[in-house]
């Protein structure tokens, strides 16, 4: 159902190359902030305000949305922008690909085999760990200024020093943690 590592790698490599050749390097994690901003702005319209003095034309009382001349505030004010639509389109592409390989018909869609091998049928624990994992991943990605896509893949392909520093940190934490948590093989 999945491609060989060679075909999968070629397809992924072409996606990263085409993105930088046509527009800019692929990145994902910023858009979690933009979606948060959109939700927040929907309940409190003072979160993003037009401000002619700001470089982007928008400002926010939140220091993070306001940073770099309000560029995130601007993206929240205009969600139909490249970065945000790109991430929505990832979901679209993956949904079509998943549908074609029957992913929606799989019975177990929340406990990976390696989870079952180590923790058995414990859905509540699995969902809790997925939520905690998501929290740590996005907090970490925003602290680092990028994620696996933006720092590791796009960064290293551009020979970015930051990409190597990020990859060192990510694997240094991830490999021992995974070996400890999932000591039994699936």
């Amino acid at each position: 159902m999945f491609l060989s590592w060679k075909s999968g790698g070629v397809l992924l490599g072409l996606a990263f190359f085409l993105a930088v050749a046509l527009v800019k390097p692929i990145g994902v994690s910023t858009q979690f902030v933009i979606l948060d901003g959109l939700l927040w702005n929907a309940v409190d319209s003072a979160v993003v305000v037009a401000d002619e003095a700001a470089k982007s034309g928008y400002a926010s009382p939140n220091a993070y949305l306001d940073k770099s001349g309000g560029k995130y505030a601007k993206a929240v004010a205009n969600p139909v922008n490249y970065g945000f639509i790109f991430v929505l389109a990832i979901a679209l592409g993956a949904a079509v690909s998943g549908y074609l390989r029957g992913s929606f018909r799989e019975k177990n869609r929340f406990m990976p085999e390696v989870w079952l091998a180590n923790y058995g049928k414990t859905p509540a624990l699995r969902f809790a760990s997925a939520f905690l994992g998501g929290f740590l991943v996005l907090y970490g990605a925003r602290l680092a200024g990028g994620c696996t896509s933006g720092h590791m893949m796009s960064g290293i392909m551009q020979t970015a020093v930051s990409g190597y520093i990020f990859a060192a940190g990510a694997f240094l934490a991830a490999i021992p943690t995974a070996m400890f948590l999932y000591s039994r093989e699936a």
Binding site: I26, V28, S29, F32, I90, P112, V114, S129, A130, L132, G133, G134, F135, L136, V137, L138, Y139, G140, A141, R142, L143, A144, G145, G146, C147, T148, S149, G150, H151, G155, Q158, A160, V161, S162, G163, I165, F166, A167, A168, G169, A170, F171, L172, A173, A174, I175, T177, A178, L181
Partner: peptide
């Protein structure tokens, strides 16, 4: 090219932790 700073390493550690726990990264 993204900026390199100390937080890139610490953020990478946190992301790595959550990555291993959940089996997912943002994309």
């Amino acid at each position: 090219v993204k900026t390199a700073y100390i937080g890139v390493f610490f953020g990478g550690l946190l992301l790595g932790l959550g990555w291993a726990v959940s089996g997912f990264c943002p994309g």
